[in-house]
Amino acid sequence: MRIWGRGLVEGAAKGEILVASEPISFYGGVDPRSGRIVDKKHALYGKSIAGKILVFPYGKGSTVGSYVILSLAKNGVAPAAIVNILSEPIIIIGCVLAEIPLMDKPEKNPIEVLQTGEKGVIVVEKGKAYLEVEKYV
């Protein structure tokens, strides 16, 4: 299955998909050293986002979150790519600085059609992007 969307930060990556149905606050919500979600109220609490194609609706919380994304990259525990329903400045700035491929406005709701654990390939070019997913039968 291929999902097309808008390309915001160019690049390509492959990896396991991790789906969060709720927004993520990187500041206070993700540990920059381990790449784990440390927000106890979050459905993905305890999960590592390192190397994953991380799918979530949008970013929230403090704008310092951009620095946390950059820090994750420096520590080698950043997501391989991010897919949002709609990206806002915290995520866009973090991904540009950390050079993490970023796609948003997918044609289908990725939170409904994708499942954690599926393998995917993402390609983001100027303006457009797609996520190709191997579906388990």
């Binding site: 920059p32 310092v64 620095y67 946390v68 950059l70 820090s71 420096k74 600085l97």
Partner: peptide, 9 residues
């Protein structure tokens, strides 16, 4: 607030 990530940046 910004920690080492912000300091380095």
């Amino acid at each position: 607030n910004i920690g080492d990530a912000g300091l380095e940046f």
